[in-house]
Each structure stands twice: as C-alpha cells, then as structure tokens.
C-alpha cells in the first residue's frame, strides 16, 4: 500500500475518571489497568493505540466486551473525545476540531451503523434513510430520491412507508446501512453492526456488505467480537485486549502466526480449512515439478482438499489474476490446519 492511509490513529489514550490527563504519564510508565483502577480510581479505556486505516479497505477491530473497541470507533467521529493522542483523517488532526468542524466532518466524511440500529422510531423507513441528507439541509424531495435508490440497493424496495418497528431486525439493519450509504461519506463506521442478528441473517448481511464493498470501495471500520465475522470481512485485522492492541495485520498471518496466547486462544477454535487461503500457505514456484492442476490463490484449503481428492502428494499450481504465483501440496495445507501451538509437538 503506497498511498497515505485514510485514517491514522497515533498514540491514542482514553482514560475515564476525574483527572484523566494526569493519568497518561503514569500509564506510559507502565501502570496497568487493574492498578490504575485500584490506586487512582481511573478506568483505562484505550492505551497507546496506533492504527493505519487504508482507503477502500475493511479494517476490522476485534475484541471481547470491555476491550475498548466501541470506545475506539467512537473516537473516529469524536462521539468520544480522546484523553491524548492524534487522529488524522485525510491528513487533518480531528482531535483539534471545533464543534462546527465536527458537525461538518460527521455530515460529509463519515457515516455510522449501530448495533441496535439507532433508527428514528417516529419516522418512516424512507425518512430514516434520507436523514443524513435532510440534516445537511437538502430538500425533502431530493433527499428522498437518493434514499429510495439506496433502499432499493439493499433490497428494501416497497417498504418505504413502513415504520422501523414493523420490520425484522435484519431489515432494520438494512435500513441502517442504506442510511449510512445515503450520506455518501467515504468512511463507514460499523459498531457491532451485525451482532444483534441471528446467524443466518448475519451471514446474509456480511454478504451484502462484501458485495456493496466490491462496488463502492468505502473505507470501512468494522467492530466485532466474532472472529469468524472478522476473518470473513477483514482486509486488515486489529485485535484489542484491555484497551491495548495485541496484534494487527493481515488476518491470514494472524491466524497462522498468533502473537501470544491470547490471540492463540481466539484462533484455536476456528475452522481453519475455511479461513486459510491457498495464497497464504503456498511455496515458491519450482520449475521441475509437474502439476496435477491449477488452483486460485483466493481459494480456501477446503477447496484444495476437495480438489485433490485427499491425495497428500498432489501438487497444484497457484494462479492469481491469470499468472502462476506459487505451488502448493496438500501436505502443506494439512500442516497449516493444525493450530499454531499444536504443531511443534509432532
């Protein structure tokens, strides 16, 4: 990635309590969350967060409840103010913004999707979807015209005059996404957007998001506590624990090389055959080998295993964008299926 990141978070701290800014040096000197709470009666929300969020990518921030992920995403549109640190959006530090600047930022650059949908219960679906434009002062006719298009795009044609309570959870969240898209902002913040939905609907919504993303190339920041969801959506994955980043990077690399036991516990139970892609475990091309077939780099190991019919010696050529980029043997794939900590014992 050569172009400058869309959003840069630098040395971000958030501490809750009576005199938070005085606590920052203590935390920098190594006071941990429990000690800060016990001795100073302050709660450590976020600690030394540095993330580069690139345009057109889905950056997933994952952590358990209390890890500070919701606090972190609210810093990006300053629904929560940082204690110290900088957040650069298109090169401008938004932590120095005045209230007026912030309103402008929220209206034009960022939209947000909420876990509980955050729809206006007293307005129709159409009015809800048109809200970002109405807030900006566009005429109702123009705003509703655009809102109608996005509602159609997310599959809600014909529901315009209904009220949110008349819709199922999944449909309500479609309205939430349509609303975010209507705002036409580059950056889309999604705070546990699919966590309140049941698993089947959640998968539908993930597909919808991926499909929209292929076409729209928004800068998406997605918060979740679900690793499967994170791995499906992420171009860049950030794992938070107790307000600290424990590991960030390419999701495949995190699965294959977890940084510590905490991350390892997370990735241990996932279905690796589905998650790990051929590209992540392939080896260098070797001209002297004959291949029994080609396989796409994007394919997961499940596909490879199915293709090889279970013969561990079969070699495949890995093709990406029409070019051979490497080779893979089913044996390599099987090794990669073992969790990280289980491997050395064999």
């Amino acid at each position: 990635m050569t172009e400058a990141p869309k959003i840069r978070i630098r040395n971000l701290y958030k501490i809750f309590g009576a005199t938070p800014s005085r606590m920052v040096p203590l935390v920098q000197d190594g006071l941990d969350k429990a000690a800060l709470l016990e001795r100073m009666n302050h709660v450590l929300g976020l600690q030394d967060i540095n993330i580069d969020i690139h345009a057109g990518q889905v950056t997933v921030i994952m952590g358990l409840s209390g890890s500070g992920k919701s606090t972190l995403i609210r810093h990006l549109n300053r629904l929560v103010d940082p204690t110290s640190g900088a957040i650069l959006v298109d090169g401008q530090d938004i932590t120095t913004y005045s209230h007026g600047d912030l309103v402008e930022l929220r209206r034009t650059k960022m939209s947000m999707v909420f876990q509980g949908f955050g729809l206006m219960p007293h307005q129709t679906i159409l009015q809800n979807a048109a809200l970002p434009l109405l807030v900006r002062g566009l005429s109702a006719a123009e705003a509703e015209k655009q809102a109608r298009q996005w509602l159609t795009r997310v599959g809600l044609e014909g529901f315009e005059t209904r009220y949110p309570y008349q819709l199922s959870g999944g449909m309500q969240q479609r309205v939430g996404i349509a609303r975010a898209l209507t705002s036409n902002a580059d950056i889309m913040l999604m705070d546990e957007a699919f966590s309140a939905l049941d698993p089947l609907i959640r998968k539908d919504m993930q597909d919808l998001l991926l499909e929209l993303q292929k076409e729209l190339k928004k800068t998406v920041v997605f918060i979740t506590h679900d690793l499967d969801e994170a791995l499906r959506l992420a171009d860049h994955l950030v794992i938070l624990k107790d307000g600290r980043i424990v590991q960030q990077g390419d999701p495949q690399q995190i699965v294959l090389n977890p940084a510590d036991d905490y991350v390892n516990d997370f990735v241990r139970d996932i279905n690796r055959a589905k998650v790990i892609r051929v590209r992540s475990v392939m080896s260098q091309m070797d001209p002297g080998i004959s291949y029994c077939g080609d396989i796409c780099g994007e394919a997961n190991l499940e596909r490879l295993i199915a293709a090889s019919g279970g013969n561990p010696a079969h070699q495949y050529r890995v093709i990406e964008q029409g070019e051979p980029v490497g080779r893979i043997q089913l044996l390599d794939a099987l090794k990669a299926l073992l969790p990280h900590d289980a491997a050395p014992r064999h």
């Binding site: 929220r106 939209s111 947000m112 807030v135 900006r136 705002s183």
Partner: peptide, 9 residues
C-alpha cells in the same frame, strides 16, 4: 438514537 443523530452531524 441520540448517538445516531450526533453521528450524522
């Protein structure tokens, strides 16, 4: 809902 109102400026 209040948060959504704020988030959309």
């Amino acid at each position: 809902v209040i948060e959504a109102a704020d988030a959309f400026g």
